[in-house]
Design a protein around this nucleic acid. Sequence first.
RNA 1: GGCGCAUUCGUCUAGUGGCCUAGGACGUCGGCCUCUCACGCCGGUAACACGGGUUCGACUCCCGUAUGCGCUACCA
Length: 493
Amino acid sequence: MSIGFEKIRVRFAPSPTGFLHVGGARTAIFNWLFAHKTGGKFLLRIEDTDVQRSGLDEVDAIIQGLQWLGLDWDEEIIYQSQRLQIYRKYIDELLLSGKAYKCFCSKDEIERQRQKAADEKRDFRYRLNRTCLKRSNEEIVAFEREGRLFAVRFKLPEGETVFTDHVYGEIKVDHQQLDDFIILRSDGYPTYHFAVVIDDSEMGISHIIRGDDHLSNTPKHILLYEALGKQPPVFVHVPLILGPDKQRLSKRHGATAVGEYEKAGYLPETVCNFLSLLGWSSGDDREIFSREELIREFSLEGISKKSAVFDEQKLEWMNGQYIMALSDERLLELVQPRLIAAGLLTQADIEKDKERILKILALLKPRLKRLSEVPEICSYFFEKPQAYDEKGMRKHWRAADVEEKLERLRTAFGKVTDFTTAGLEPVLRELCEGLDLSAAKLIHPLRLALTGRTFSPGIFEVMALLGKEVVLERIAAAIEFIQKNPVEVNALT
RNA sequence: GGCGCAUUCGUCUAGUGGCCUAGGACGUCGGCCUCUCACGCCGGUAACACGGGUUCGACUCCCGUAUGCGCUACCA
């Protein structure tokens, strides 16, 4: 812990790009966990100094993502766009002390010089000429009188900056690598490097936990802290999240927004758990961590230096684990909107038929990876099969005596009064014995008739939940289908 | 290009000089369970980037090379 901060205060500071990126979410989780672990505060700050790219909707999307993940923040949300006067105050301070200076060079002019340098294979550094630092007072006053726009540059001191990152250890950077970077743009907005330092300082941030793409920027920030006579916080850079091709995770890798994972049927607990394990490890062999366990186990020491590839297969597995742990009631709550949207059920159906639906979900649970699979995987419980699986027909309905077998099943089931798993199974088994057939020989054709598919939960469970009437009906419908489409069935060899 | 950082199974990782014949998880492969699909269980496959040091002894420490990523903007 650093000297000078008695309270732990961390923040998540996204720029509003329209959605919460999984990388950002992971950073937010680490911050949140650290705050909860240490009894500190977790603050939220919106970095909306790029007016072109920022808007209220974009902010909403990020807030929604955080809420979905259950990452609540303390205190009011800070918007950088509302703090312009504060930045101005500090800019003036640096201007006055000569640690920064106004730059009247136009963007175009700078770009031209940068291009020229590139052509000559030189590095462009504004500080090599410091054109505007050399201007006379008269010149500057004249520029200002004619209303010429200016940016403010930080006057980079000579030497080197050495600091200790909590994850990466000692980092040393020679100021030769740096430039008189701009801290206030000509539109009056501060740049990221300036705003971040002012805000973290004003907000009393004790630990900056952020992506390691900022590791190289940190010397600039430290220089700014020093110029302002402020105490720098502890820096904790966390490795980036990569796509399967080891490139920085981006849209072309598929889903990168947490909202997309919500849509795809992942649970927030899964996403939190999974993301926590990307770039951090508790040191033991566990994979599944409840939120409380995560808080208990989390430590900055467990953060890795190596960037991690986002492995969606493991995410899926983990989500399956979480779904299995859900109560039937909870699963129904979660899945209800999807069932309704798919047109399988109405709100009223669900209320009326709740007991049965809960039993159906219980059967589905160990088979689920994502909530979005539910409507598709259980549709036959609520409507008759739309079609029969072709491969299934070829395999199970081709025998010449299929119709007869189905007919026998129908007759036998018709006599069953105890239409439960326990009541049905012996009936089918006895029929098999009488026919000298393995149970599978009847079960597969039957499953196809009842569900239209070659796979389902245990057939007796399915029958019990379908109910006698529906079972008899569907067997009859299958027989009729086979009779009407003998060619089709037989031609499919 | 310059600078910074990283480098253990395909992937996430454990490992902080001898406990490593390198452990776990996902995936994959094989098997069991079984009416199918899952679940579950059992087992297999698979890694210390490379080259030099240091040391009695290196996955662990140092140097170099390679590769990857990041920064190098009036984006954040």
